[in-house]
């Protein structure tokens, strides 16, 4: 295991290396660039790699569930806002059938490589079936 704690906070240790979600270096982000309309809020989001590094930091500091959340979050960085909201809605009680949930899981894995989310959603589908939380 690598020593990750020394890297934290990444804002200070990795200012030059950190990328925004759109792949620009963090050092590109300036008031002038924003004034020029060169940067939108959608650029100014975290990159999947950054979340994976935060996951490693959390895991090493003894927060494995938080690390798992960051790993799932990393997979979701490329999922558009509207889709995220729809997935959340499908996971609420009695919204979706078992097949719809497993198809959703497969879709996420195929489209975004979201393996961990897919497994998590399949886990949910199985429980929903067992506990009668699927759409009736």
């Amino acid at each position: 295991m690598t020593e990750t704690k020394g890297e934290y906070p990444l804002r200070d240790s990795e200012t030059d290396a950190l990328l925004t979600h759109s792949g620009r270096p963090l050092s590109d982000i300036s008031a002038d660039a924003i004034a020029a309309g060169d940067i939108t809020g959608d650029d100014l989001r975290t990159h999947a790699d950054t979340l994976r590094r935060q996951a490693a930091i959390a895991r090493e500091a003894g927060y494995p569930q938080l690390a798992a959340n960051f790993s799932r979050a990393a997979e979701l960085t490329d999922v558009p806002n509207d889709e995220l909201l729809k997935i959340y809605e499908m996971l609420r009680p009695e919204r979706a059938s078992y097949d719809e949930l497993t198809r959703l899981a497969d879709y996420l894995e195929a489209t975004y490589g979201a393996k961990e989310n897919a497994a998590f959603i399949k886990d949910a589908a199985a429980t929903y079936r067992e506990r009668n939380l699927l759409r009736r």
Binding site: R45, Y88, P93, F120, I121
Partner: peptide
Amino acid sequence: VDGDDTPWSKAFLASAYASRG
């Protein structure tokens, strides 16, 4: 369920927020 969520939907929401920093 009365709160219109499950542990999985809440956990997914947590990841969704984290994905947006």
